[in-house]
Write a protein that binds this DNA or RNA. Sequence first.
RNA 1: GAAUCCUUAGCUCAGUUGGCAGAGCACAACACUUUUAAUGUUGGGGUCCUGGGUUCGAACCCCAGAGGAUUCACCA
Length: 532
Amino acid sequence: MVCLKATMKKRPFPEIWFEEHRFFMSTELPLSEQEAIRRQSLEQIRAAGIDPYPADLYPVNAAAKDILAQFTDESAGIWTEICLAGRLMSKRIQGKASFAVLMQDGVRIQLYVNRDEICPGENKEGYNQLFKKWLDIGDIIGVKGYVFRTMVGEITLHVQELTLLSKCLRPLPIVKTDAEGNVYDAFSDPELRHRMRYVDLIVNPEIRATFIARSRIVSAMRSFFDAKGWLEVETPILQSVHGGAAARPFKSHHQALDVPLFLRIANELYLKRLLVGGLDGVYEIGKMFRNEGMDKTHNPEFTSMEIYVAYKDYEWMMNMVEECLAYISVSVFGSTQAEYGAHRINFQGPYARIPLFDAIMQQTGVDVSGMNEQELREQCRQWNISTSPEMGKGKLIDQIFGEKVEKSLIQPTYITDYPIEMTPLAKKHRSKEGLVERFELFICGKEVANAYSELNDPIDQRQRFEEQLALANRGDADAMALDEDFLKSMEFAMPPASGLGIGIDRLVMMMTNQTSIQEVLFFPQMRPEGGK
RNA sequence: GAAUCCUUAGCUCAGUUGGCAGAGCACAACACUUUUAAUGUUGGGGUCCUGGGUUCGAACCCCAGAGGAUUCACCA
């Protein structure tokens, strides 16, 4: 709201903007009975002179996780003056004493609240009103007290002081688990979980593990690269020419310049400019945006790690990737092995290295390496693989590979040496005619990484772009655009180099046993709620 | 983009042949000072996704639309 006002001062929004956004600006939302009751409690709390959203810091001095791990009956004496804060997840009132569950940073700990201990004087309002009536499940509270073990043996905080830190105005879905581990009323609808990830994280705290792993995987990758002396950089997300990959972009517009801008589909051409500039090892971890469909392995925005190292080739890069993934796997999970569905994935190198045409031959018994476009098209028809007229030789081979080989590559496998037609940014193969020095890494039947010996011959590069233009004119919407400034930079001489891109979301999926990209993104793309 | 299935209380879900809208949890009231899916008694809570149609009467049947799930297609 503040932000909106500030913007409006400068430049009023056109009428149509308000028309389109009136739903979001409405302040009059109908309240359910339970929401109304919580607002009433809020007013009563205020009327009692209690600030439901206090400003001062709350002196938390312990973690529920540590208490549960370290408390022993012998050491009970030292567990006093403990101060915890978190969300109230359940309340079981039994007259003048009660049990509750506090969730602090994803860990549940039981509280014991006794009327005469939190209200030592004559006035019992703090227990009878605030705790019993006005506090709801979902409220964030602070508690001070000592740790003990209940008669049934549960480690519990005996509360001596209770502070409301933030009132929750909406009912929280309550997921219950019984002694046998059966879950009741699970908050499991994927749409609701993804739209309201904050609620998902509260009531399904086990999903934190995947996101924590994701953070650690990226962090481990960063330390691996940093230790090699390579520099993390940032390059433009808004680009006037969307180069570096074959994909449809999102289009935007710059008002002041009155020019179209694209959200980047790749950052490759900018990282190569940095190689020209003399930065010999650069990498960037960031979002790419592709205007394509969504499914279990595709989100319109995704995170990619791109790295370029001067004076190396793609064989060196294969060794580096093996080393890197094994390092990440060990430092995050303590093992080079990972479960993925029924498979056990081994990230320890060396990985199998199979030339593309050999891989197709192994799976089909057919050698397609010598075929021209017409023969490839005929072969596709025999295998019942769909083709379209604008597909060139490269794309047809890619189609065959995707149909016949990709799914079978479960263990980390490099497919190497691709036809030149489908790879306009890679260097021609040093010994194999018509191929380029490229590899892709496949794990669990999905592409996870893509790398080249980078093309650094500016004349050759210009020709390759022109071939792409020809494809674009045939109707291939994904063909690459020609970037004049990039070509100019290359004419200043780019060192020979190898470059690599890793799909971080997919790598995280492989390492955390998730079959849907939505489960490794906090906020996957969803259709607008309530239709267009 | 296609097929199939789904959308009912805050959450998870029933709903008979087309005949007054249901349960558990949650919520409210009362009781209860070591419980743990706390318990007992009582009570409140609904745009049955939206819009049309058929019918005396629609959560239910028909048509259109929206959203979701799964599979396929597209897409590195």
